[in-house]
């Protein structure tokens, strides 16, 4: 446990001090001003646009962090053989994965928390400027959407870990996890699109439909974590929905990490 914690700690320190994180934070400040500017252009729904911008930029910056700071921190460890200094310790391969995952997750949580503060600040600014447009706005809906976005990023990170556990270069890992993200966040829409003609009697190839359905199960269904529309309009989201999505996210990450542990245990580091 101590070993796991210390690995998480140095991973966090290493990640936080790298320039990627600083760059992303500067970008975040830029996005905050952009948010104030763009949502101020709206005629009516200032609150909605402000929340949209806040949530989407959080999602975007989070993805940059996952791909370029997160997945890289793990796969570079193997590529540059810094992993030797860890595996030479009495740390099992599984603990290595978990410690690394905990450390990188901490980086993401920490950076996104800072970003969320900036984004909330931009919303406060807009709220004071246009109080009449913020009547339906709710901080709790915004918070839950932040939370689910965070969970979805952790899920994407866990798929990155799976790929890093067997691929030998960080580039392949990066490409595979980006592709997974793209499929995971659009599969549900594609499925919905294919199912509509089915309902009105038009024929789509059943094979295609099966493939897409299978993709929905295999790839992380990231649309489950998207309650941005609800947050933007202050619509009611039942707690049971939020809890079940979080449960799904944690379970999916758990499966991904278990698979990575199994693969990693057998792996050699020549």
């Amino acid at each position: 446990m101590k070993a796991l914690f210390s690995l998480a700690a140095i991973t966090f320190k290493e990640g936080i001090r790298s320039r990627t994180v600083y760059g992303i934070l500067i970008f975040a400040i830029f996005l905050m001003f952009l948010n104030v500017m763009i949502s101020g252009m709206m005629m009516q729904d200032v609150a909605k646009v402000a929340v949209d911008m806040a949530l989407s930029s959080l999602n975007f910056v989070g993805l940059l962090l996952v791909f370029f700071a997160g997945v890289n921190l793990f796969s570079k460890d193997i590529e540059r053989k810094t992993i030797y200094m860890v595996l030479a310790r009495p740390i099992s391969r599984s603990r290595y994965i978990l410690g690394k995952f905990a450390g990188i997750s901490a980086i993401i949580v920490f950076s996104l928390a800072i970003l969320a503060i900036f984004e909330s600040a931009s919303i406060v600014i807009m709220k004071n400027g246009y109080p009449a447009q913020f009547l339906r706005f709710s901080w709790s809906a915004l918070f839950f959407s932040f939370l689910l976005t965070l969970i979805s990023l952790i899920v994407v990170l866990s798929t990155g870990f799976l790929f890093a556990s067997f691929s030998s270069t960080s580039f392949i890992t990066l490409v595979l996890s980006i592709v997974t993200y793209l499929i995971g966040s659009s599969a549900n829409e594609v499925k919905a699109l294919l199912e509509v003609p089915h309902d009105i009697g038009e024929r789509t190839s059943p094979l295609l439909l099966y493939c897409v359905k299978a993709a929905c199960y295999i790839f992380p269904n990231l649309s489950l974590f998207d309650i941005k529309t609800e947050a933007a309009h202050g619509l009611f989201v039942p707690l049971s929905y939020i809890l079940s999505s979080i449960f799904y996210g944690i379970l999916y990450s758990f499966v991904m990490l278990s698979l990575s542990c199994i693969i990693f245990k057998r792996r050699e580091f020549p």
Binding site: A3, S6, A9, K13, P90
Partner: peptide, 18 residues
């Protein structure tokens, strides 16, 4: 890890070895 200091590196080594 290039952003760590030697002190932190040794801290990790010690911690990980219990």
């Amino acid at each position: 890890y290039e952003h760590l200091t030697a002190e932190e590196l040794l801290w990790f080594g010690g911690q990980a070895s219990g």
